[in-house]
């Protein structure tokens, strides 16, 4: 239950920062917080009360398969974290170019494309 409340809070904070803040770097931070909300929600789906990490040693699958937490959402979240990392890295490179071209990081000054 706590995980769902935390995830919803992170989603709302991330979306608010993404829309309302004017600085480009704060928008990218908001994007990162938004993704964290989704990841926490996804991981908490695989939780099992009193579970152990899904690590197989010496092929003891039959002993731990009933009490281990679900490894599939963890794989999904790892993939998504890597994707978001590369998007953030690329966004930072573009922001360097934005500063070089426009001289400012305020989104309200980037108004040459309208219509």
């Amino acid at each position: 239950m706590l995980a769902y409340i935390a995830s919803m809070l992170l989603l709302i904070i991330g979306a608010y920062t993404l829309v309302m803040k004017d600085n480009l770097i704060k928008k990218i931070m908001g994007l990162s917080v938004f993704s964290s909300g989704i990841h926490i929600f996804l991981i908490s789906l695989g939780y099992r009360a009193g579970g152990i990490p899904p690590l197989l040693t010496n092929l003891n699958f039959n002993q731990i398969s009933a009490i281990m937490v679900d490894p599939l959402p963890q794989a999904l979240v790892l993939t998504s974290i890597v994707i978001n990392l590369s998007i953030t890295a690329f966004a930072m490179a573009i922001i360097v170019d934005v500063y070089r071209e426009f001289g400012t990081l305020n989104i309200k000054k980037l108004k040459s494309l309208r219509g």
């Binding site: 993404l18 829309v19 309302m20 928008k27 989104i107 309200k108 980037l110 108004k111 040459s112 494309l113 309208r114 219509g115």
Partner: peptide, 11 residues
Amino acid sequence: WHSGNLASYII
């Protein structure tokens, strides 16, 4: 309406 303002697009 397509004012070029990113916030209005996301909203």
